[in-house]
Structure formats: C-alpha cells, structure tokens
Computed example of a mutant assay.
Amino acid sequence: MILTGVVTNICIQHSAADASFRGYDIVVPKETTEALSDEDYSHALEYVHLMYGAEIKSVSEVLKLKNVRPKGSNHFS
C-alpha cells in the first residue's frame, strides 16, 4: 500500500497503523507527505518505519518499484 498525505505525524502515521494491522506492506514516498514542522515530519517517518515496517522511499524509487512511468516518459525497459 502506498501512503501519501498532508500531515505525516497524524494522517500517515495512523493510516500506516491501520494498514499494518490489516497485513499490508507499506511504502511512503517521502516527497508526497508533509508536517507542520521538520521535527514532526522526521519523527513520523521514522516511527512508521520502525513500528510498522514501512519503506520510506523517494517518488522515483516508488515508480521503479511499481514499474510505473511518469507521463511523457519515452523510456522502455
């Protein structure tokens, strides 16, 4: 499950808990989340990684992981 959201330390953190309890593997593209402070942001990403096994990746890593290409991409593998 790929999680994105506005308030990392609330929305992402609680959604990750729900997803984990239901057995989903979790990926959080770090550029698609935000928090009210850098400290809250960093702590929340660390927490979901440690507590729920979430993989914290860049958007480009997630696109490669899911074999998805951005619009306008002419690259083929």
Rank of each mutant, 00 (worst) to 15 (best):
G23E: 05
D25H: 10
K71H: 11
S37E: 02
G23F: 03
N74S: 09
L45C: 01
L63C: 06
T33H: 04
A35L: 02
L45F: 03
G72T: 04
D40G: 06
K66Q: 08
D38R: 11
Y24E: 06
F76E: 14
L63M: 13
E31C: 00
L45M: 01
K57A: 15
L63N: 03
K64C: 05
V28F: 02
V28D: 01
P70R: 11
V48E: 02
S58I: 11
V27S: 10
V28I: 08
K30M: 10
E61K: 06
E55T: 08
Y47T: 09
K64L: 13
H49P: 14
T32M: 11
A44W: 01
S42V: 00
K64V: 10
I26H: 04
V48M: 07
G72D: 00
Y47Q: 12
F76P: 05
G72C: 08
D25A: 15
V68N: 04
K66L: 11
Y47I: 02
A44C: 07
S42T: 11
V62A: 04
K64D: 07
S37V: 08
E39L: 13
Y24R: 05
S77T: 14
S42Q: 10
S58P: 09
I56Y: 02
Y52S: 07
L36T: 09
R69F: 07
T32R: 01
L36V: 07
V28M: 05
N67E: 13
P70Y: 13
S77M: 09
T33Y: 04
Y24L: 12
H49C: 11
S73W: 14
A54L: 14
S42D: 11
N67A: 08
H43C: 08
H43V: 10
D38T: 08
A35V: 00
K64W: 01
N67C: 03
S42A: 11
P29F: 00
I26P: 01
I26L: 14
G23Q: 10
E55M: 07
S37M: 06
S60E: 12
V68G: 02
L65S: 08
A44D: 01
V28S: 03
I26V: 10
V59T: 14
S73V: 06
E31A: 14
L36N: 12
S77A: 15
P29H: 02
K71R: 13
S42R: 06
M51H: 12
E34H: 09
L50E: 14
H75P: 01
V27A: 08
N74T: 13
Y52V: 03
I56A: 04
D40L: 15
E34C: 10
G53Q: 13
K66M: 13
V27L: 14
H43S: 09
E39F: 12
A54M: 02
G53T: 13
H43R: 09
G23T: 07
Y24T: 04
P29N: 04
G72Y: 08
S77G: 14
E31W: 03
V28T: 03
V27T: 06
E34V: 03
L36F: 09
A44G: 04
R69Y: 03
Y52K: 03
G72S: 08
A54H: 06
L50N: 12
T32K: 00
L63S: 00
L36C: 06
A54Q: 07
A44F: 04
V28P: 09
P29S: 05
E31L: 01
E46G: 10
G23L: 11
P29C: 08
